[in-house]
Design a protein around this nucleic acid. Structure first.
Ligand code: MN
Ligand code: MN
Ligand code: ZN
Ligand code: ZN
Lengths: 159, 159
DNA sequence: CTCTAATTGAAAATGAATTTCAATTTCCTT
DNA sequence: AAGGAAATTGAAATTCATTTTCAATTAGAG
């Protein structure tokens, strides 16, 4: 079962890499060693990483990859629909793998900075409703809850 | 009736200025000509302004007021609870007057950039509920709906 | 293999926001 | 009213994430 989870995950990653390849070919862009490395590390990380985060991880093993290329590759991933950008209160752009359809929102701890994801169909419906009231055509939304996470509320009296 | 609205508004502004004065005194800070001018213009504008926006408005009449001071004063207003900061998709920090208690969220047009405000008690309740599920202590939230406003959806086939 | 267009990394540039600093102003104390 | 300490100011410098520039390298179609 652990086994099958792992290979399932790997399968999905492989599929995403294929999608990127198609996207590149379609746009007349090239598949490079650097892009492969960056994309690999990105899908492996599976967090809300900044370009800098990812750059640091990669450059431990690959001293020759530039931060600029990490920025550029993350932008490509976003354009191809394989990643999303979000900017939280710290004003850094974070990227995370996007699984086609899923939309989720975020709980962000004001103390430790941890980011928890949640999905809520009511929010989705509410979005439609509110947009409707204003004659607005909704395209996307962003909901962020700031507060103190379970761990921090326990560990701290400094709340 | 128009009359009374106007004076009502002026009264509120006057009250806010008083609150700022108290805040400053309390913190051992000073009331200056520059702060008065900036705060006036800010409450008069009553929009989602950037520091730059406000600076441009003011410097038409007052060539001697610096952008730096506008930044600093907006920060003070925020600290004193008379303004709030928000950052939308364009990554600029915008400020708006805050009327003590009211919380509202935003609809942002992807075409013309217009910002419409809305209040929704269901979102407030949902926030509490979701936070609760994760053992999270909610402090604040941010909800932004991006899409096309009424005017833009009508005027444009380029949707 | 060849050629052209895309890509790369380093360095420079950008742009919003913050910090520094010397000169000025506020306002508390006599 | 005057003195003086501490806060404030605007300009210039600085920061920091991100983008742009550019010469050298590389991918990959033909
Ligand atoms: Mn997420
Ligand atoms: Mn608003
Ligand atoms: Zn936490
Ligand atoms: Zn619009």
């Amino acid at each position: 079962m652990r086994e099958s989870r792992v290979s399932e995950r790997d399968r999905k990653i492989k599929e995403k890499k294929e999608r990127l390849k198609s996207f590149l070919k379609e746009k007349g862009l090239k598949s490079t060693r650097q892009r492969a490395l960056i994309v690999n590390e990105f899908f492996k990380a599976d967090e809300h990483v900044t370009a800098e985060d990812l750059y640091k991880k990669i450059s431990r093993k690959h001293r020759d990859i530039g931060l600029t290329t990490v920025y550029r590759t993350l932008k490509l991933l976003t354009q191809s629909g394989l990643a999303t950008e979000s900017v939280f209160a710290d004003n850094l752009t974070r990227y995370e793998p996007l699984s086609a359809d899923d939309h989720h929102d975020h709980l962000i701890c004001l103390h430790c900075g941890s980011i928890t994801e949640f999905e809520n169909p009511k929010i989705e419906r509410l979005k439609e409703r509110i947009a409707g009231e204003f004659g607005f055509i909704p395209v996307s939304h962003k909901m962020e809850l700031y507060g103190y996470c379970n761990a921090c509320r326990e560990n701290a009296q400094s709340l």
